[in-house]
Design a protein around this nucleic acid. Structure first.
Lengths: 237, 237
DNA sequence: TTATTGTAAATTGGATCCAATTTATAACAA
DNA sequence: TTGTTATAAATTGGATCCAATTTACAATAA
């Protein structure tokens, strides 16, 4: 028996309760079922998940350090919210880092990655060509396309930071994804990125990635301005 | 004066035990008293701080989500470590984000900020001109210079991410700061940044900030390669 | 001596209990 | 009616206790 296979062992162990609670709360925040400013009562969450408050507290602590929850001492956690400027901030940061990740990925172009990206685009084409577009499926494959590209950069910390940003951007970006984005335009941009990737033109990939994300930013901010959606509710008190 | 006014601070901001434990552990990791790979025993830490294990666990959870600690289920936390590629990753990211922050700050140039930056540089000049350079004082003021510039960008999330990166870079960068950096060269770069800032040349500030940080990156990696310092210890066992 | 195995100690993961503080409610006075 | 205050309920912050698992160690056999 070999003592040296920590990864394999790690893969086997069951998810801990804090991890479970974290996943649950994170999903609830990202899909909007927990609105910004909503209080996160430890007892209630614990009761709903059938566990004690302790793992909940660790999960909340993690959510806080990721920017999805806010702790007001002795008053408990609430779902964090972003105002217009902060959304702008996060999305600009996302664009910057995705450009950097795309750049790094292209410096070490790989055929397997190119094929995988191609497969994503093919599936995306099928989805967008159908009559009622399956928005969820589109979002999932869209995510996979970008993830495949960025993860191939061989820069774990950069990718980790990107995931963090996505957590904070996603609940707002979903609005844009569902309602505002021209799916065909988006696909055209994906194609351009893949072409530049294949050509090994890192600077071009960076530029395209930046524009691709920046388009989302612009659209989302426009949307926010038009609807005048209040993104910082009761919390202000 | 401000350091010792426990009552007023307590009244406004009661220090929670998890926060206290977090600060303690973070400091110990950053200044090297807790080496990479060292186990973080909950009971021992709790005993040393005179509190129970519960706040420790929340602190450890936070350290984990910030990348300073690693949790191996049922085996406890250990101090996280970065290998050469990961250090490169983090420092490149830092350079990228500082360039972005410098850019944003310069787009909204402010005289008060310029004066504060100038004051930092004046103090730094005094420090570097003395015979035995006070490295700690230099590091602190150096930090203040960058913080002042970046925080004036009006981009809280970007600054937050920069702080996160600094946590991960600092324990390695300190080597470079103490032994490798040409303080006068560094000061010259600071001057150039301030000049470009005053001129409102955002692109130039971004460029200079990037180079300024990238110099640290290059020097640190060179140092690592030369000393062949093993940055990923015991973990394998 | 060296490898193996069984047992004890140490350590984590989790639950329950208690104190302190905040929030909600109701009684009372202007 | 409206504002204030006293009291009760809810909620967080923290400590202690218990179970499950891992690690250390010693006894045993080859």
């Amino acid at each position: 028996m070999n003592a040296a296979s920590p990864r394999a062992i790690e893969a086997l162990n069951p998810p801990s309760l804090p991890e479970l609670a974290y996943q649950h709360l994170r999903d609830s925040i990202l899909d909007g079922s927990l609105e910004a400013g909503a209080p996160l009562r430890q007892e209630e969450i614990a009761g709903r998940l059938g566990i004690s408050r302790l793992p909940i507290r660790e999960a909340l602590r993690r959510l806080e350090s990721e920017g999805l929850a806010m702790l007001r001492p002795r008053r408990g956690y609430v779902v964090a919210s972003l105002n217009r400027e902060e959304i702008d901030d996060v999305l600009d940061l996302q664009a910057t880092l995705e450009a950097r990740a795309g750049h790094a990925a292209t410096l070490r172009t790989n055929d397997d990655v190119a094929r995988e990206l191609e497969a994503c685009l093919a599936q995306l084409d099928r989805i967008t060509s159908r009559a009622p577009v399956d928005v969820n499926a589109f979002a999932e494959l869209n995510l996979k396309f970008h993830d495949t590209l960025f993860e191939s950069s061989g820069r774990p910390f950069l990718c980790r930071t990107l995931r963090l940003l996505r957590s904070n951007a996603e609940r707002y970006a979903r609005v844009a994804a569902g309602m505002l984005i021209d799916l065909r335009q988006s696909q055209a941009e994906h194609r351009a990125i893949l072409e530049a990737y294949r050509a090994g033109d890192a600077a071009r990939v960076a530029e395209l990635c930046w524009e691709h994300r920046d388009a989302t930013r612009t659209r989302l901010l426009d949307h926010l301005d038009k609807t005048n959606l209040e993104t910082t509710p009761a919390g202000g008190k």
